[in-house]
Design a protein around this nucleic acid. Structure first.
Lengths: 333, 333
DNA sequence: CTGTTAGCGCATTCAT
DNA sequence: ATGAATGCGCTAACAG
């Protein structure tokens, strides 16, 4: 690899001039600039990022810390995040925490070592806290730290909307299935459901009249299926499964038990993996604005890294309820 | 941020000793080491990765270049890749090419600038070539460059297996749907299909007797649906859709047209997204060993970066045919 | 076993 | 407008 000194020598100028010519910072005569650029091209010169990072005290690298790489919920945001940050001259260093607070702490250390300029963080530990002085925006979930900057889906409004759709279809006996409630996402989804259900006059665990029930379970297809089994014969007329994995679980349970959707029981979901739309019946669902979230996270982070006054607080982006066939109109008995 | 010099001063030693104490390289008295470590802890010292990279001429960063972050086909491998590389002390810098050769070239430049120690690459351009001297292992797809190291799924064998399963079920009129054939993956999948079909005596585009047809289309659900529509009324008794997206397309087409699977037509797929198993009927498919591929790619790359004689050539890992309900026994007419 | 020294490649003073 | 000199923080080589 040739160095700046090589380029300068070939061009017959000093390293300072060569540096200015290549970076475009500072004055340099157009003719000399050409000479330098030609020399650089001839040598196939590339600036050494490590040397620049050391000298400039910025790496132009952004850390992305997420629970795992395999979840479309994160990767959908990550894809646009990557694109937007790339366009702004940043590269993405990706670390997985494995949904584990100790993995999360280790990630912070690595990121600090790497002198990343900023971090996009899908938090695992609600009580975790980021190193001071480093621009960070939380994505998807947020911690309890109210001074932090976070970009999330407005699940409260979205799930409330979704639930209202179910209730408007005439259902008066509804079950919600949700994952671990210490996560901000689960808590907010549930809050949206409860709000809509209570506004409509349904009573939690009521014995007669309009009622709703809430099942807390593991955040997986197995968890969803297990939750449905816990219901025994006392099936509701509609289920709202608050994650795509839980929807899968309900579907599997229904398939195995011969429960027809939506004839025997309606189903509404959350998230919108591609197969939701082709399932028969297609799944009615609340789709969080994953791409928007990535875009806004990138925007906030880029601004913060540029030294602008950071936008703190939680930015809640509206998603979309997609009404399809898995929720049917229910005749009140 | 405190520097090594700060630590050395506080511990009352020279920077060389401090460096050795912290890195563990070279001799240092246990007592002085303690002093250094204590001083480092007190200051919250962290080694500056940029300075180390500059000095050591290695960054401990590995580039991951893939078409996009949003495809479970890549992320499934990437997840274990990330984990294994992390365990070996490497971080992952992720670049997306957008399935575009120019994006791919840009990625190489970035990677070179960053002085990455190695690269895992899902190639876009079959004729592309990597910078010499840099350890690279190709993942999932491979270029024509026979000196390269690549870890891929043995799709030829896998799809041949899958197809044999279909033929053994009695089908004698089979259609294969495949994406752009300039990709090594598509070409190999198709080769596997052809081999099995021809071995069984089916004739391509035959007019009477056992026959098979091949449909080339866009690599998407829309492509799959369009391919099926091209068939008009001349439906085969079984379709082998050679990607999960194509399976989606066939399923959508079947749903819209009222074609029942497997009663009216059998369907076999490739890949195994979670919903394949819960679909009614569950989808019979060939599942490439994505996790294994990530693991072996990491292993090869780590060895190459350690300076060991690189394993070149194409490592084909066996996947698994998962026989489920979407292929039914066919009565010969 | 330890302290001192010399760069790694670059951007940026400061003179000119 | 340009060249020379400085130092970012670290590790490796060397002399002690």
């Amino acid at each position: 690899m040739s160095t700046l000194a090589d380029v300068a020598r070939l061009a017959g100028v000093g390293t300072g001039t060569a540096s200015r010519a290549i970076s475009g910072n500072g004055y340099v005569d157009p003719d000399t600039r050409r000479k330098v650029l030609d020399a650089a091209a001839e040598l196939g010169y590339r600036r050494n990022a490590a040397a620049r990072a050391l000298r400039e005290r910025r790496s132009r690298v952004v850390g992305l810390v997420l629970p795992d790489l395999h979840n479309e919920f994160y990767t959908a945001s990550a894809a646009v995040l990557q694109a937007d940050l790339h366009a702004a001259g940043y590269q993405l260093l990706v670390l997985a925490t494995g949904n584990d607070p100790s993995g999360e702490r280790a990630a912070w250390e690595t990121l600090l070592d790497r002198q990343v300029d900023g971090v996009v963080h899908v938090p695992v530990d609600p009580d975790g806290t980021a190193p001071p002085g480093l621009p960070v925006v939380q994505l998807n979930r947020h911690t309890r730290d109210t001074t932090a900057s976070a970009v999330v889906s407005d699940d409260v409004a979205g799930v409330a909307d979704l639930t209202r759709g179910v209730l408007d279809a005439g259902h008066t006996d509804v079950v919600a299935i949700v994952g671990a409630t210490q996560l901000s996402t689960s808590a907010e989804r549930l809050a949206g459901f409860r709000r809509a259900a209570e506004d409509a006059g349904l009573v939690e665990d009521g014995t007669d009249g309009p009622r709703f029930r809430v099942l807390v379970t593991e955040f997986s297809a197995d968890g969803g299926a297990a939750a449905m089994r816990r219901l025994g014969d006392d099936l509701p007329s509609a289920v709202v499964a608050l994650s795509s994995r839980l929807v899968m679980g309900v579907l599997r349970w229904a398939g195995e038990g011969g429960v027809r959707i939506p004839e025997d029981m309606s189903l509404a979901g959350l998230g919108d993996p591609e197969w939701f739309a082709i399932w028969r019946p297609a799944i009615t669902t609340f789709a969080p604005p994953l791409a928007d979230m990535g875009r806004h996270a990138a925007r906030r982070l880029i601004a913060a890294m540029a030294g602008e006054a950071p936008e703190t607080g939680i930015l809640r982006l509206a998603g979309e309820v997609r009404t399809r066939g898995s929720v049917s109109t229910h005749r009140r008995r």
